[in-house]
């Protein structure tokens, strides 16, 4: 053992860092204050502040004749949301987001389950790589690639033709609402691309939640007489639910806000993101755009409240 020089109390460390260490040790709250100030300023003023400024605009209205924003408090812009043309957009968007979210959950869960329960070592690394790799390439490239896949002259049609299943595809495209001239100009196409693009955001939180389910709870459930499917529904699923809800917040809110995907792949009927884009851009109706922006926020709030009521966060 090397004896330290000096007495029982060591001398002060020199320099500014020595003095700072002592000061922080004596006043731990000072360090917390210094560390929190920049992010709180950023989050509070620049991030939330600008959102509030936008929301404020939703209580203004547009003068129909001059095309100028009238900075007076009114609910008339919100009333406009309930006009059939606008309300259709909201319903359409919420339905799309809900279907995309449910499908993401269904596709993601088995992948997340396999990764959490069975993948070890290099297989786990391969899983993360496989899930994240699509995120490393440009969003636009992927969406245009899908447009080519789904187009009338695209690879999907070619495969159906090769398998002599073209009538099946045509029959599907003939279905109103979800069909269209080709998959690339139908809601089904939009749905497929949303599903593809948002899937990692569903897989990762679900996998993290499943990974935290202790194996002995599964043993205990079986020990108490639960068949594997009972164990799944009574233990594994409830404990993974916070992860699924976290994932669904991503898929749901990302779908509510996106305007690029439905612009490239999909029908001409708008969803909320496109409506916001159109209103604040070419139409110059900032108040209506802002009011449209409030819709996803309210829907997400309702969604989380319902999830909490249903006990989705009980396991947290």
């Amino acid at each position: 053992m090397t004896a330290l020089e000096g007495g029982a109390i060591l001398p002060r460390r020199g320099g500014i860092f020595g003095a700072l260490s002592d000061a922080f040790w004596r006043h731990p709250k000072l360090l917390v204050f210094l560390m929190l100030t920049p992010p709180v300023l950023w989050l509070g003023i620049i991030y939330l502040g600008s959102l509030l400024a936008l929301l404020l605009q939703s209580f203004y209205s547009l003068d129909e004749f001059s095309g100028l924003v009238v900075p007076e408090f009114t609910l008339s812009t919100y009333a406009q949301l309930f006009r059939p043309s606008n309300f259709d957009i909201i319903v359409r968007t919420v339905l799309m987001a809900a279907v995309v979210t449910i499908a993401s959950g269904v596709v993601a869960f088995p992948i997340a389950y396999m990764a959490a329960r069975y993948a070890k070592g290099k297989w786990k690394a391969l899983f993360y790589l496989g899930v994240m790799l699509p995120l490393w390439s440009s969003y636009l490239v992927k969406v245009y690639a899908w447009k080519l896949i789904l187009a009338k002259e695209g690879i999907l049609n070619w495969v159906f033709e090769g398998l002599h299943l073209t009538p099946l595809l045509d029959a599907f495209l003939a279905i109103p609402v979800i069909g269209g001239n080709s998959l690339s100009v139908s809601y089904t196409g939009t749905f497929l691309v949303f599903l593809y693009i948002w899937l990692p955001y569903m897989i990762l939180p679900t996998q993290a939640a499943l990974e935290r389910v202790p194996v002995n709870l599964i043993d205990a459930s079986g020990d108490l007489g639960a068949t594997p499917s009972q164990t799944f529904w009574h233990v594994i699923f409830p404990l993974a639910l916070p992860g699924l809800v976290a994932g669904s917040i991503f898929t749901f809110s990302l779908t509510l806000g996106d305007y690029i995907i439905p612009n490239i792949v999909g029908s001409s009927r708008q969803i909320i993101g496109q409506a916001v884009y159109a209103q604040q851009g070419s139409a110059g109706n900032i108040p209506l755009a802002a009011a449209f922006t409030v819709v996803p926020i309210v829907i997400m709030g309702l969604y989380l409240w319902m999830a909490k009521r249903l006990g989705a966060f009980n396991a947290l």
Binding site: L217, A220, D223, L239
Partner: peptide
């Protein structure tokens, strides 16, 4: 028809 008391109890947290 055999039940176990687990070392770390394995109670269901939810």
């Amino acid at each position: 028809n055999v039940n176990t008391v687990f070392q770390d109890y394995a109670l269901f947290p939810h």
